[in-house]
Design a protein around this nucleic acid. Structure first.
Lengths: 197, 197, 197, 197
DNA sequence: AATGAATGAGATTTCATTCAT
DNA sequence: TATGAATGAAATCTCATTCAT
């Protein structure tokens, strides 16, 4: 076998792992299979990752970073209207999920907690969402008594749940409808301004 | 009949499985361990369940039935006001989760999809919630253009996500605050009546 | 073979065992399955047979006895011509095999040696055949230097091999052709009279 | 390459399997025992054979090939006389059986059908024998109405039966006597030429 | 005598990991 | 660095056998 360049090897292992994890689930996949699919020896696998969970985690961290970047970019491009911003962020993530369904599933689906026994679970932070909500409250655009921490977490659960359900079978909904529904249920829209606001 | 039929072996296996699944996760638990904890032989395990996933599924079905019953009971006891009903339903589930944290986690958490390779995933139906929302629409109490199917699913994802997060560390929130936040974000409250409603 | 009395537990176990052994082979069958098929409890199985091999042996002994009886009867009915007698004996066994294929297979086929680890293998004696050959030699009808012991065993191997092969797929040959070929190769015909005899 | 590839693990597994199968029978032997006797880990066993039946089959195929080769060689060395050729072929197999009793037993004895549930049974073809008989018929040296297919199969059953019986206890007969008896009962000799032949 | 739930030793099989090359 | 044959601990599952009823 040709000697792959180090970085190349790691990339190939990540790609092979992503395919296999998405298709079969973490449990049904083993390091030998990942190495084989990457056309590398098992030994090479262990030279790059301590075990399959380490590879999974690497995949998840990458995906999380990519999603974070997509949200940031979308917000940078969006106008000042709060609901426009909410919508832009959701749309960005939905586009990401559609473009990288395996990565999204492996990061947020069945595999999300697969590495639990091998280290902390990788997950999206609810902080940015909470911060945005807090700002709306400060501006009087959101009910002041809403617990923004809880609301942010709740929203994220909802977003993830819906995108995962959609990816299982894309005919279940249109991306636009999904984004619309999620926007409407977003705390910024939902737990709207105080009475009369 | 045969040997003093260890008073309901099946019940003991279910109880042992629940403890172990909740504590260690499906992957770290094996049939031997479950049988041992139930103080039964391995063979007895296999006489009752085809494998650990069958036991897990039985546990999940039970929990789902119990939650359904709790919601039904709560609604039967609640008044006619829509938001009262929403709140009653949420509160009932939160109480169930608090009273049976292992069962709730094993049904909706990490273990939810553990049996995926062994049969369909057991999950709560979004139909009752969707039906309730549809009724509110019919009565003009909910924006007519909301996609109630999507909204119902989205709400359920949120509820589950929050309760799971809460159970991980109950000091993170008060049950009342949780119920309050979930109620506020429930489609019935959130995607409220059209302007002026 | 003897008519099993349907209500006798032992008979029912034998019948069930015969069906299962013939269909699945000794290895794939267990005492629980036999008892179940006989519509009896496992305990009842053990009250009658020490294990599945004991049942198998009983089946084989029965079959052997029935075949012996069929040969004796056929010879009693046959005329004095040596080749007529050979043919009659072969035909009798072929008829038995056709009428009781499971019993024949279970006695001489795959299952023949299945109980080897649990006691001596049950097999047909070559003595009667050897004795008949010896008599032919005494009458000068068979080459005097033929080793009748070996020849008798050899013949029996051949007969069993052919009948088993035939039972696997009865379209492979006609019973008459089979009997004819076996008769021609029988030592009494084959290793015929001394030169010029 | 990898770790000092234990000089042909596969060869050692085959040898170990042969010893154990011959001594104890397929049922009493397990993959652990074979690996242990070959001084290899169990995993190595499974890296080479899918299960003990695959190893058994490999052993049987080898033996069959060796016997075929021995017959071919013996016939190449033999003169043109039909009975000399028959005798030469039988003698070659008898010598093989004597030299490799375990292989012969494992191929034709109890173990012959042990792998039946795991694939087709390996067995010696009766074609060459049938072809040889047909040729004798063509040359008028064998009764024209003998069914050569049946006769060939019948002969092979006989040969195998006798060699197996002999190997069980070699004092039962001399190799020469065995070969002599088998030759005399071989269809080529037995169902000889029509009257006057 | 008949029952059949319970048992647990043992067989089968997988797979993370090592290490000589 | 890369390799991949070898490893063996551990999980899964079967089934002959027991024995209280």
């Amino acid at each position: 076998m040709a000697r792959p360049r180090i970085d190349d090897a790691e990339e190939r292992l990540l790609a092979a792992g992503l395919q296999l994890f998405a298709r079969l689930g973490t449990e049904r996949v083993n390091s030998n299979a990942i190495a084989k699919r990457a056309r590398l020896g098992v030994g090479t696998f262990y030279a790059h990752f301590s075990d399959k969970y380490a590879l999974l985690r690497a995949l998840q961290l990458r995906t999380l970073a990519a999603i974070r970047a997509a949200r940031v970019q979308a917000l940078a491009d969006a106008g000042p209207d709060p609901m426009d911003r909410v919508r832009a962020s959701i749309a960005a993530v939905a586009r990401f999920a559609e473009a990288h369904p395996e990565a999204y599933r492996v990061t947020f689906g069945r595999e999300r907690t697969a590495a639990a026994a091998h280290g902390p679970i990788v997950s999206e932070s609810s902080r940015p969402t909470a911060a945005a909500l807090r700002e709306l409250q400060a501006r009087g655009l959101l009910a002041a008594d809403l617990d923004v921490e809880l609301a942010a977490r709740a929203y994220l659960s909802m977003e993830v749940g819906m995108l995962l359900w959609w990816l299982e079978d894309k005919t279940r909904a249109q991306r636009a409808g999904l984004v619309e529904t999620l926007s409407r249920l977003h705390p910024a829209a939902a737990a709207g301004p105080p009475v009369g606001g």
